[in-house]
Design a protein around this nucleic acid. Structure first.
Lengths: 224, 224
DNA sequence: AGACGCCATGAATAGGTGTTCAGCTTTTGC
DNA sequence: GCAAAAGCTGAACACCTATTCATGGCGTCT
């Protein structure tokens, strides 16, 4: 007797898997990675604790997939924004702005994905996540360098440094705490983007122009 | 009958306390914060596990003091380097270089102090540590701004961003892995310092000069 | 309709480390 | 030298949450 999964069942299984992941994401967005515990996530997803283990071998795997998923979304958003820009420098500015806006609009989640202490080992997926995003930024820096807009440099290191600057200043423990005010938030995004662009060698005056330009499409997200 | 601590005993107690802290520091430098567990630390300090609790109310307190101690040392080094510089811009460059060299020369410890997951809550002391260092950097940026060497800016945010850039690119998960080679190490320090200076608005050409200048006194540490 | 296999359940288990404390040793004051 | 106080010890405890698994229910095939 060959038991075969009906299409309907396959769909239900997939839905459940997504539900669990979504529940984990909500929990993380809500209370950080600390809130991503098997039992609470199971409740959120309307399944029993044991069921989670039918879909993910371990908590580490669950969180790893969560990180990968968020990372994919992030990367797509960055590419979209950068590709829509008129030139390499604008693209870089757009990419940086996108990262800034995204992490700010989901601070707890971002902090959880990036740096919050977790009781299981997720270094590998965090590493992969960073690699992807940093790689994209590095590519954009490289394009600007090749276009002659920036001095030659170690683009990988620069990209890493930029991300570090963004993360620490926007979602790190020292991040300003009044970022709920849309105006302050936009200012923070602009300030940090300006810093980032100057860091890789964009002249101050030109950088300011790029920042304003890049902020415009992101207006809706920034809410100003 | 009034029992009173003899001078000798006071000294022994203080010595023991230091020994425990030192043991914790060694453990952290050796295997990161994960290695700072009560039992192993006690062994290193040649005391019993219970004894640790006669000096520190909890593991959280022990680690908090460890963080504070390392932070104090770091701050002192930054001040020393900056104060020895001839002008505000040089001082800023020196401060940044000092941070870079320090975190690189004790990567595991730095990572532990800054961001490594710990099973107890040490956010408060980490926050304080960051505040101190960032405050110092902010002060130096401010001095350079007032001297007319840099454009006006949000110095607190800039300082935070700089530290984020340094940490992420030098001890974060994406940090280059060949930093044991002294030459590579020096290059990394210079590259990152250059990025940092440009970020706050130092012109590229001038920044390069400051970087070289600032690296010279740190030569010994950098080992090149 | 019957038999069999996959899926879901959630209470019980496991494992590891911070913390406690009753007993022992060392120091103090007379 | 002796009693009292303080310090030290380390085995036992406590706690917490990831993970397991015996059981029951549902879907699939003949």
């Amino acid at each position: 007797m060959v038991y075969r999964r009906t299409h309907q069942v396959v769909k239900r299984l997939a839905a459940r898997r997504s539900a669990i992941l979504a529940a984990a994401r909500e929990a993380a967005a809500d209370g950080g990675m600390a809130a991503v515990q098997i039992a609470p996530v199971a409740v959120r997803a309307h399944v029993a604790a044991g069921t989670v283990y039918r879909y993910f071998p371990s908590k580490a795997d669950l969180i790893s997939e969560l990180i990968a998923e968020v990372s994919r979304d992030e990367l797509a958003a960055i590419r979209r924004a950068a590709d829509a820009a008129p030139g390499p420098s604008s693209a870089l500015a757009a990419a940086v702005t996108t990262v800034a806006v995204h992490v700010l609009s989901q601070r707890k989640l971002a902090w959880g994905i990036l740096a919050e202490p977790v009781d299981v080992d997720v270094t590998a997926s965090r590493l992969a996540s960073r690699r992807e995003i940093a790689g994209e930024i590095a590519t954009r820096i490289d394009a600007a360098v090749r276009a002659g807009h920036l001095p030659a440099q170690d683009t990988a290191l620069a990209a890493t440094a930029l991300l570090g600057a963004l993360h620490e200043s926007l979602v790190g423990p020292l991040a300003p705490d009044n970022l709920d005010d849309p105006v302050k938030l936009r200012d923070a995004v602009q300030t940090v983007t300006l810093l980032a662009l100057r860091a890789v060698g964009v002249m101050d005056a030109r950088a300011r122009g790029l920042v304003v330009q890049a902020t415009t499409p992101a207006k809706a997200l920034v809410g100003a």
